[in-house]
Design a binder for these strands. Structure first.
Lengths: 278, 278
DNA sequence: CTCCGGTTTGACGCGGCGTCAAAGTCAAGC
DNA sequence: GCTTGACTTTGACGCCGCGTCAAACCGGAG
């Protein structure tokens, strides 16, 4: 019989750990002196302790270790738990590797630019949203901006404020195209009955912005003519982290533009659905 | 200006997180109404929040993120922190991969044996210890066991109990050799002056059991003739986890054998210094 | 009997929030 | 104006696996 100190030296663990394992019923001493509360361990129990430590080393929680050590558990259940753990480890290995790539790409950006990158790309899931919008092709940016401006004005006038969500532009065409296939509208917070139309008679149609579980997002502030910088940053990020565009991008206006005449800066969130590159 | 709920929806984070970041000074709202305590955020702050989230994604602690966002920090310091983080990630990646191999080997053992493996190998660092022992070659196991038995008896008689550590056998030869080159003795808890000798006149010499930072250990209970099972388990473990023997193995007796005539079982810890296989 | 070094229980701390709970605020509808 | 119901505030506890005190008690040697 060893007292806790000697046993902890033999096992090379702390006494605190032994007391903790006792308190959660994972490894109780063979005998506890009822008068003094002293814990007495036997050499045998080192085997059990080692089993606990070995299973813990696999990354299992102490709860899981306890279940694995119950005598009523079947081999299949043990296999199941370990298989589960294996899958989890594989997933987290992938995540760790991705993190490492992220760090490396930030370091590379610092070396190239002499400072921390200007834009930060964040990956988030986005839920589906009801979307009231107008889809058409535009001959150029100027035309698109004019329509955007008009729509911002009209919705502000015609749509109740509590139904009005953010103004969003969805780009269905690549940026290299001559013709811009855009969908311009705003998110509906609740359904409305009113018909909204532009001055040239086109009516906005209700559709849905589909949910995207891996949306690369980036916040940009500044005048329009600098927007290529933000897109460049997004491209770099996807390159460095092995992502590819997986759907039409969106521009979400957080501060409505054109609200005051002196307001040149707009704040928008640029969003792109992405997927792991092959 | 957005209130916390709207801002949290835009940023797709919880309100609790925003309040927490405010409380630790990581991201405070632009304005706080002094009368009501309501927090008001601007679109601009989404940029800062995204920077925080992006850096957190790299696995940095919020403390480190806060330091990275201080304006007084230099590019070199940022580079240093990220480089450090990179090294840490590489280390932990290796650990994760090792864990995965461990899980896979346990699964394989289950498939082969139909149950959880009998022995659990645990890796621990072992400190240097003062060692009073006799080293010689033995013609066979019987001779070695006889000496071990005699030494156990003699030390029990001649050495004060508070100086007596565990009985240890160090194997300097491989198990395949005809001649066994063994060192048999016990750990000294404190220095002693007494001379200890065996009946054939050989004196025990004081030496040192060197420290080993990666010792594979395993607890075995049972009669001597089954010890090959434990060694087999150790071999399997090293095989599966890419370790190789890196020094003489030890057998540490936790329950002194031969103490009572009816005692057949001994409990010992088998130890092997290991290193990553090439 | 006195030491000194064990040992006991108990509490707090860590990191990064999630999850209530109780109390106060806002805007819309009447 | 008053009532709702949705929102917001602060505060507290919980998680996981112990490390790290602190105060009180115990064991064996001299």
């Amino acid at each position: 019989m060893f007292r806790i100190g000697e046993f902890s030296r033999i096992a090379r663990v702390s006494g605190r750990l032994l007391r903790y394992y006792d308190s959660i019923g994972l490894l109780s001493p063979q005998r506890v002196d009822p008068a003094t509360g002293y814990r007495y361990y036997t050499a045998d129990q080192l085997g059990r302790l080692n089993r606990v430590l070995a299973l813990k080393e696999l990354g299992l929680t102490l709860d899981q270790v306890a279940r694995l050590l119950e005598e009523t558990i079947s081999v299949e259940e043990i296999r199941g738990m370990l298989t589960l753990r294996k899958a989890e480890l594989e997933r987290s290995l992938g995540e760790q590797a991705a993190r490492l790539r992220h760090v490396e790409s930030r370091l590379q950006q610092i070396d190239e630019q002499g400072r921390l990158a200007d834009y930060d790309v964040v990956l988030k899931p986005v839920a589906a949203q009801s979307f009231l919008a107008l889809r058409r092709t535009f001959a150029g940016m100027d035309e698109a901006v004019a329509t955007l401006r008009e729509l911002a004005r009209e919705t502000a006038r015609q749509v109740p404020i509590d139904a009005r969500g953010a103004l969003v532009v969805v780009a269905h065409s690549d940026f290299e195209d001559e013709q811009l296939d855009l969908e311009i509208g705003f998110v509906l917070a609740r359904s409305i009955n009113r018909r909204i139309a532009t001055t040239d008679g086109r009516a906005l149609a209700i559709g849905e912005l589909p949910a995207v579980d891996r949306m690369a997002t980036l916040v940009r502030r500044g005048p329009d003519y600098q927007s290529h910088l933000a897109f460049g940053a997004l491209g770099l990020w996807m390159d460095a982290n092995d992502y590819a565009i997986a759907g039409p991008g969106r521009e979400v206006f957080l501060e409505l533009p054109f609200q005051r005449p002196d307001q040149h800066d707009t704040v928008m969130e640029i969003q792109f659905p992405v997927a792991r590159a092959a």
